[in-house]
Design a protein around this nucleic acid. Structure first.
Length: 588
DNA sequence: GCCGTTTTCGGCCCGACTGTTTTCAGTCG
């Protein structure tokens, strides 16, 4: 097992121990053990284990040394398996409801015998929860609301999770001998931040072997439909997927149709009608006549097209990329030839907002830099948390100073091709002041400012707070505008338009946080904001090496926001970024 | 479960908010 996988096991042990009512300090020992592990380099861990020196690391006592060694060498841990089997899985699920922690869950279990979400719902409806000591009407209501939200949210999935499932399926479909063409359609193809289900579209010569392959994918829990043209499955994760198989001549029309969005399709069909054509997933045919679309498409020769670009051209339009097909003016723009050339993943030369083990990251500075180099990035910005973010192990002034020295030494050593910039993700305090003094901020290459606490301020107060931080002369960019977590938590209330105006006025960049559960600032705000002169930084907010790849999700969102390469600062090369940051520091 | 010029047991632990209380426990970031 890798160090991060072992750390995950230790963290899970901590959660399970909490739910059994164990000594909280024992729980913390596992949590801090996980953190200590993340602070090591992968190779260092192997060496320490081999030499029997693991116990010399602070945080690893006798028990953890034994468990980490067992996990590292065998990939398994008997203690963990036993513990997991002894805790009802329903309790772990209950812990995901906001406001329900281990203490309350233990009371619910011991007093009411509740060990599942279903039993909890019933107990709330019967008023039994409100009657418990330490609980009340409001708590009961909050639990019910939490369960409802959970169910509502449960129907959708983060784009990244859906994409990771879909990629190998598309590749596998294309590799089948019967398959001529295969694509994933739907909101996944449009790069939406969340996805309801997966839609696979295939042009095939022979249907049965394709269906048989599809329903045999790993993780498929049940086959919910199996017909002539459409097969549906549900994965263990709850994600549903449809496979549609069409004749090759229909493929492009079906791909366009099932990519959507609904609004875009409605506008496209209206446009077709205005040109005497009827458009559907079956084809593009003369509009007059009786019968179903399918019958018409078969009776009258459909227009033939080899790809979507030709399909759009038949309606007098430039090609519209899937990300723009939201019915938000893309057709008008495509008619006039006014579609922007959108930013692409390959345009990125680096990114600014990333963490290391100095705060709450899971990989060291060297590991993060090596990962950035492997991506071909010219630069990597390190922005660990500031001192007020206790929960994230925020850095004190002394630790920031030390990190700056480390980064300078790393750059000077020229071990990596990737240049590292010194930054901070500096907390915006409740009154809008920054968490570090000006002298310290002046030593850094750049400053990301973010809100991490007191989310409950009213909109006016929060807006003022953020604008005050933007006005600070050392601020380079604003982190996650609303602090939302997709499918889990609403963002704090803030007047985005006012914040955008302030950012433009003070030449401050706003980040498009590319973390798959943030994608914040929302793509719906970017088009107008960029027209007003706002510049964007697509930042992965990576907390481990694998997190750097999340910029892909950020690029999706940026494209949905009509952003061009020129509007995204981290498409610039190292020399340009150095000039930009030096210029800002000199000016202020 | 970890740690120790408080050293083998007793302490470990940041601050705000919420809802339950009438001074505080639990949760969260």
């Amino acid at each position: 097992m890798t160090k991060n996988e072992i750390a995950d096991v230790l963290t899970e042990i901590g959660v399970l121990l909490e739910l059994t009512g164990e000594n909280p300090f024992k729980v913390r020992a596992y949590q801090s053990g996980a953190r200590a592990l993340e602070g090591l380099e992968e190779a260092e861990l192997g060496r320490l284990i081999q030499e029997g020196q693991l116990g010399t690391i602070k945080g690893f006592g006798e028990a953890l040394v034994q468990k980490i060694t067992e996990l590292h060498t065998t990939g398994k841990l008997g203690y963990f398996e036993k513990l997991k089997a002894s805790v009802e899985p329903g309790l772990v699920e209950m812990a995901q409801i906001p406001g329900l922690g281990p203490k309350k869950i233990i009371v619910l279990k011991s007093k009411l015998g509740v060990t599942s979400i279903a039993a909890l719902t019933q107990a709330c409806r019967e008023g039994k929860v409100a009657a418990l000591e330490g609980f009340g009407e409001k708590t009961q209501e909050k639990i019910l609301a939490g369960i409802r939200n959970r169910e509502a949210y449960g129907r959708r999935h983060m784009w990244w999770d859906a994409w990771e499932v879909s990629e190998p399926i598309v590749a596998g479909l294309r590799a089948l001998p019967q398959v001529r063409r295969a694509e994933a359609a739907g909101s996944l193809r449009r790069g939406m931040e969340t996805v309801g289900d997966l839609d696979f579209l295939v042009a095939a010569t022979d249907v049965e072997p394709v269906i048989a392959w599809f329903v045999a994918r790993p993780g498929v829990k049940e086959v919910t439909a199996r017909g002539e043209t459409k097969t549906s499955v549900r994965f263990e994760s709850g994600l549903q997927a449809d496979l549609r198989i069409v004749p090759e001549e229909q493929f492009v029309f079906a791909l366009h149709h099932f990519t959507g969005s609904k609004d875009h399709n409605v506008q496209m069909r209206q446009r077709a009608l205005a040109r005497g054509l009827s458009m559907s997933e079956w084809g593009l045919v003369p509009a007059e006549g009786e019968g179903t679309a399918k019958a018409k498409a078969e009776a009258k020769q459909s227009v033939t097209v080899k790809d979507e670009a030709e399909l759009f051209a038949k309606l007098g339009l430039h090609f519209i990329v899937p990300e723009l097909r939201e019915g938000l003016g893309e057709i008008e723009a495509a008619e006039k030839g006014g579609l922007p050339r959108l930013v692409e993943l390959a345009d990125l030369r680096g990114a600014f907002h990333n963490h290391t083990t100095a705060s709450d990251g899971r990989n060291t500075l060297a590991e993060m830099t090596a990962a950035a180099e492997a991506l071909g990035w010219e630069y990597l910005g390190i922005a660990d948390h500031s001192k007020s973010s206790f929960q994230a192990n925020g850095l004190s002034e002394e630790r920031v100073t030390k990190q700056i020295e480390e980064i300078h030494a790393l750059n000077a050593a020229k071990k990596f091709k990737t240049h590292v910039f010194t930054g901070t993700e500096c907390d915006i305090l409740p009154d809008g002041k920054l968490d570090f003094d000006d002298a310290l901020l002046a030593q850094l290459d750049y400053v990301v400012v973010s809100v991490h606490n007191v989310f409950t301020q009213d909109e006016a107060t929060m807006t003022k707070r953020i604008i005050r931080a933007i006005e600070h002369p050392r601020t380079t960019m604003l982190g996650h505008l609303t602090g939302r977590l997709l499918l889990r938590r609403e963002g704090y209330k803030v007047d985005a338009a006012k914040v955008i105006d302030a950012a433009v006025a003070h030449d401050v960049v706003i980040e498009l946080n590319a973390s798959p559960w943030r994608l914040d600032m929302d793509w719906r705000l970017w088009r107008k904001a960029a027209e007003r002169g706002l510049r964007c930084a697509i930042n992965p907010d990576a907390h481990e090496t694998a997190g750097l790849a999340h910029v892909r999700a950020g690029v999706n969102a940026a494209r949905k926001g009509w952003l061009t390469k020129e509007q995204v600062v981290n498409t610039q090369n190292l020399a340009a970024i150095k000039r930009w940051l030096a210029g800002r520091r000199a000016k202020k």
